[in-house]
């Protein structure tokens, strides 16, 4: 397996190169697979499972995370179906219940990927899960950055960004299982070498890592997800490809 090959997502032929994950190939083809822990520029983690797709046919199929599973020639991937999206909606809903996510008071609202994912996945029915309402810490020790861990979804983006891009290791996981949390490498954030310019401070999908002095700067209507559903940029690529091909004709 050396050259480019084809596989199918929801029956659509997608081109891939060896080593590409299902999600990378889908992104390039303009097919959006919902994701929270994965973000461009960081290594894949496969933690949130929101990108779960089914490969290998409906009945005998296996659920895999599209961000870590390599694409293979002839693979049949089930992505945007009611069944897949129902599982994703439940996962996202449980993330809302596991922390304290009060959209009306959160400065990330409108730019928050968790919120945007809930909108995309139609999370509007009355909930079937209890709210855990944990008591978590607010760390405002750093002069430029605050951490409201009530909103952390443990996606690990800040950990990967700090280790791999900033080469600092400001963030890391502590604890196991349901008790696993993101923690800082010091007594508090002020006692780490965290800096506002770090890549880690710009990758948080929710309102946990707060850049002080910037809150609510963007008016409602001009925020990122006021312009379209999460994933619309990737889905727009499919249209661009067609337009480019048309232009060449």
């Amino acid at each position: 397996m050396n050259g480019p090959f084809q596989f199918r997502i929801d029956g659509v032929e997608v081109a891939a190169t060896p080593g590409q994950t299902i999600m990378e190939a889908a992104d390039a083809a303009g097919i959006y697979i919902p994701r929270l822990c994965d973000v461009e520029g960081l290594r894949h983690q496969g933690g949130c499972r929101v990108c779960t797709v089914k490969v290998g046919g409906k009945a005998a199929g296996r659920s895999v995370s599209a961000c870590t599973q390599p694409a293979e020639p002839g693979l049949e991937v089930e992505n945007d179906t009611e069944a897949r999206n129902r599982v994703r909606r439940d996962l996202v809903e449980m993330l809302f219940h596991e922390g304290n996510h009060l959209c009306p008071i959160c400065e990330k609202s409108g730019n928050c990927e968790l919120q945007a994912m809930a909108c995309r996945l139609d999370m509007t029915a009355a909930t079937r899960f209890p709210y855990l309402e944990p008591c978590r810490d607010l760390d405002a020790s750093h002069p430029d950055i605050a951490l409201d861990t009530n909103r952390c979804i443990s996606c690990g983006r800040c950990i990967r960004a700090s280790q791999d891009v900033d080469a600092k290791g400001v963030f890391g996981y502590v604890g196991r299982g349901i008790h696993r949390r993101v923690a800082v490498n010091g007594a508090d954030l002020a006692h780490t070498d965290a800096a506002l310019a770090d890549h880690a401070m710009s990758v948080c999908p929710v309102g946990c890592i707060i850049r002080k002095g910037e809150g609510f700067a963007t008016p409602i209507g001009a925020r990122h997800f006021d312009h379209g559903l999460i994933g619309h940029e990737i889905e727009g690529r499919a249209g661009e490809d067609l337009a480019r091909k048309d232009g060449r004709k």
């Binding site: 809302f96 009060l102 009306p104």
Partner: peptide, 13 residues
């Protein structure tokens, strides 16, 4: 989901 009044449920630490 309780909204702003629900801030008293957990955020008081």
């Amino acid at each position: 989901m309780g909204g702003l009044p629900a801030m008293r449920n957990a955020i008081m630490h």
